[in-house]
Amino acid sequence: MCLCLGNVIIGYSLCWSVPVIPKLIDPAQTPLDEALTVDQCSWLAAIFHLGVITGSQTGAFLSNIVGRKPTLILFGALCLSSHIIRVSARNFTTLFVGRIINGLGAGGISSGNLVYIGEIASSDLRGIILTATGVLHTLGSLLVFSVGPYVSYAVVEYTVIALGTVHAAALFFIVESPVYHVIRGNEDAARNTLHFLGRSKDVDKELKTMIENVKQRNIQYTQLNSKHRLLKCTWFDIFRRRRNRRALMITATLLTIQEGSGIICIMSFATTIFRKAASSVNANVATIALGVTQVFGILLAPLLVERYGRKSLLIFSTAACAFWAALLGADFYLELINHPLLSSIRWIPLATLISFLICYNAVKYSFKFLINIY
C-alpha cells in the first residue's frame, strides 16, 4: 500500500500535461508571467519522458548500492520536490526544471516499485500485486483527467503534493528487501525480514531460492588465463552471446512498435486533440472517458491474452491500433480541408481513441508476456 501510492503519482504526473497545457496557453488561466507557446508546452510534455529514462536507469544502479528502501525514499522526495517547484513557478524555465525532476522521480519510483514488490511478495501473490500497480497507474491518470479541467493550476499541483507527502512519509515505514540483504551477504537480516513479512513457514526455502537467483542473475563463470573467476555480468554480455542478441532484437522491435504507436502523444495531449478535432463531445468529458477506458482496458487485457494467446492477440491488436490511428488521422485531414462530411461524424475522435486504447492495452500486455519469455 505504501508503494502503490507511488504508481498513482506516476500516472498523475504522466498525464499532467493533458488538463494543464490548455491553462498554460490561456492568458486568463496561466499562473506564469506570460502564456506559453505551443512549442514550449510540447517541451514540457516531452522532457518528462527523458527524465523517466534517466531516473529508471539511475534508480536500478543505486538500488544495488545503497538499497531498495533508501532509493525509493530518494526518488519519492524528488517527485515531491518537483511538484513544489512547479506550483511556485512563474516562468517557463522553472516549470521546465520541475518537469525534468518529476520525470527523474517517476522513473526511479516506477523501476524501484517493480523490483521491490517482486522481491517481497510471495510467489502466489506476486502476479496479482504487479498487475495492481498498472491499474493504480491508470487510476492516477483518471484522477488528473477528472480533477484538472475543473480546478485552477494551483489546485492541480496541491492535489499531487498532498499525495506525494503521504507517499514520501509512508516509505519510511517499509522494510529493506530481503534480496538486497542477500546481495550484501547478510543472510541473517534477510531471514529476519522474511519473518517480518509473514513468510516464516518457508524461510529456509525462500532464502535458498533468493541466494540461487542472485547468483544466476548477477554472476557468471568466465575462464581467464586457464583460471576460473567470478565476474559480474555487463551490458556487453547482451551482445556477446547469440541467444542474447536474438532476444534483444525481438524485444527491441516489440518495444519500438509499442512506444512508436503514438500513445505518449495521445495521453499527453488528449484534451487538445479533442478540441482540434472539433469532437461532438465536450473535450474535458471525452478525456475523462479515455481515463475510464484505460482502467477498463488494463483489466480486460489479461482475459484477452489468456483466451486468444499472446502472439495472435499481439498481431490483431497492433493492426487494430494502426487502423484506429489512421482513422483519426483521416478525421484531422477532413477538418483541415473543411469537408462537409465532417459535420455528421463528430463522434469519430472519441470513438477511435477509445478503441485505440483498448487495443493498445492488449498489445502492451502481450508484449510483457513475450518479453519475459525472450
Rank of each mutant, 00 (worst) to 15 (best):
V66E: 07
G262W: 09
D26P: 01
Y374V: 07
R346W: 08
I257M: 12
A301L: 07
P22V: 01
S141H: 01
F196S: 06
I117P: 00
P340V: 06
M210N: 02
R245F: 11
H49M: 10
S146P: 08
C2N: 15
V305F: 03
L14V: 10
S122P: 08
C41H: 00
L255Y: 04
G329I: 10
G134L: 09
F323D: 04
S268F: 11
V151Y: 04
T138Q: 15
N7E: 10
S146K: 06
I21R: 01
H137W: 02
L207W: 09
A132F: 14
S42A: 13
L130V: 13
S366K: 02
E176Q: 14
A170V: 01
R243T: 13
A169V: 12
G198Q: 08
H137A: 05
G198N: 09
S110I: 04
E335L: 14
A132K: 06
P178I: 05
L224H: 08
V160Y: 09
T253D: 09
L197S: 06
I128D: 09
N102C: 14
C321N: 11
S344E: 10
I109W: 00
Y365P: 02
T253Y: 10
S81Q: 09
I373M: 15
R184Y: 06
I288P: 14
L78C: 05
L336T: 14
T58D: 00
V20D: 02
Q57S: 12
S111G: 04
G105V: 01
K215D: 14
I129S: 03
K368E: 14
C265R: 05
R99T: 11
Q220N: 13
V151K: 11
K364R: 06
K364L: 15
T271L: 09
I348G: 00
R199Y: 13
L130K: 10
A301S: 13
A168N: 11
H195Y: 09
R199S: 11
P349C: 04
L163E: 04
S42Q: 10
F316T: 12
L207M: 11
I53C: 07
H339C: 12
L74D: 07
P178W: 01
R90F: 09
R346H: 10
L3P: 02
I266H: 00
L255F: 09
W324T: 07
I128S: 11
A325N: 12
N192A: 15
T222V: 15
I120G: 01
V87H: 00
A45W: 05
N186W: 00
H181F: 15
V66S: 03
I120S: 07
L303G: 02
I25D: 02
I257V: 15
S343W: 04
V166G: 05
L44Y: 00
I266P: 04
D237V: 07
I264S: 06
G76P: 02
S63R: 12
G148L: 00
T58C: 08
A320L: 14
L74S: 03
V295C: 11
I73E: 07
A169S: 13
P70A: 08
G185E: 04
I264Q: 08
L370M: 09
A189L: 07
S123P: 01
N282L: 03
T234C: 07
R275M: 13
T234M: 11
L230A: 06
M267R: 06
